[in-house]
Amino acid sequence: MTFFESSFLWLDVVVASALSGAAVAAVGVHATLRRVVFLPAALSQVAGLGVVTWFLLAHRLPGFPGLELADPGAWAILFTALGALALGFVREGRAITREWLLGAAFVGSATAVLLIGASVPQGVHDIDDVLFGNAIALERSVMWQAVGVSLAVLAVQVALARPFVASAFDPETARAHGVPVRRLDAVLFLCMGAAIATNTRVVGALPAFAFAVFPGAGALRLVRDARALVLLAALTGALAAFLGYWLSFELSLPTGACMASVAGAVYAAQTGAEALLGRRD
């Protein structure tokens, strides 16, 4: 059976992967511009913390408010969105840099996931299945959740691309001119958290990080307009997800690694294209 003949097997997961990959790539433009590319990596660990917290509460405090209202995946999105807000707004001090905070969030969340995961009956492997999926099969409800969240994130990213970039380019002037910089930042970081948590659940932490790092940086090499940056990055993210899945099917290689490889290869091609075309400025 060829790849396309077996589409009934992979259509859901590829649609969810491509859309959530596009959403992560769109927010990745801003992570690159704001020089916080390790924020998505830290957030993927915070997503895990949301999942294990759900399992821990379900095990120890079954009547805890919110457990029945939302599944572990939704808790992952909530934790990641809150983590993105906290990490996005925290100010650097003399002794603490933003990079240090991102590293601390990564290590702290990863450690908590392992420790809590070992103390709940489901164990770390079950939690990993909820958190990372397996990129082969996807529950229909998870697919629709991913589609809904990703489309919402993409819509916000396209609509507010220019204000997001303008407020990051010169926040002092933007604030002086009355642009609601902190509210824009809050929306951006919420989008970042939601996109990372969703994409991590569909394809895993490695490709989610790759989508956050490569497409945005590639777009920055080729286009100058804020909205064009977001659109090119999103298209690249979706393409990398689809081609990565196809390569994985054809070559029987790990899906996440194939997606990350394609994202990296497209970035290399964009870098080459910039060099070949020369500076168009």
């Binding site: 690159t32 511009l33 220019r162 970039v165 303008a166 380019f169 001119h177 100058r224 940056l229």
Partner: peptide, 16 residues
């Protein structure tokens, strides 16, 4: 790192 064209930078002054 921002690749913005000069005209786009000027136009952002309209915000707010």
């Amino acid at each position: 790192i921002f690749p913005l064209r000069t005209i786009d930078v000027v136009a952002t002054g309209g915000m707010g």
